[in-house]
Amino acid sequence: MATPMTDEEFTELAHAAWPGLYRTAYLLLGDHQLAEDLTQTALTKTYAARRKIKDPAAAPAYARVVLANTATTWFRRRSWRNELPTEILPEGGLDRDLSTGPAVVAALATLPPRQRAVIVLRYYDDLSVREVAHALGVSEGTVKSQTSDALAKLRAVLGDDVVPATEGAHHD
């Protein structure tokens, strides 16, 4: 049996992982309160599963998968299907400089939740198609098709400079 992390080891790990996980959560959800809830939930579940994690160094990656997986569960909720309003769309829409980080984050918020998730995990967390499929509990084919659709929508909003037309489903 693996020796589980001590409470002190877990707390240290959680402090280190919190900012990165929170940012991923915010990009996925577009809401600070929900992002905090999701990050806390992911770390709580990671603590509860610490006996399964044989190498403490793998715990942040485990927490990230739990975070993505929990988010997809949230997306199934009725209120999410009705599209929660996002707080990160800037006033005046997206007609300003589109080559900035905040503009890209705002454009991201216009995507359906699952497409947003594949973009965040692929291009912010730098996960492979296989890793994204595992994290979201879907097939690799689904990740590729969702990525392709999402990039097409982002290209329409942000332009070819940010999302070149050659990009598509098969980027790996």
Partner: peptide, 17 residues
């Protein structure tokens, strides 16, 4: 998608944690 990735990181860095 390097530019998209870089801009995403810029945007994320601007998020208050």
């Amino acid at each position: 998608t390097d530019r998209l990735s870089a801009l995403l990181h810029d945007g994320a860095d601007a998020i208050d944690v």
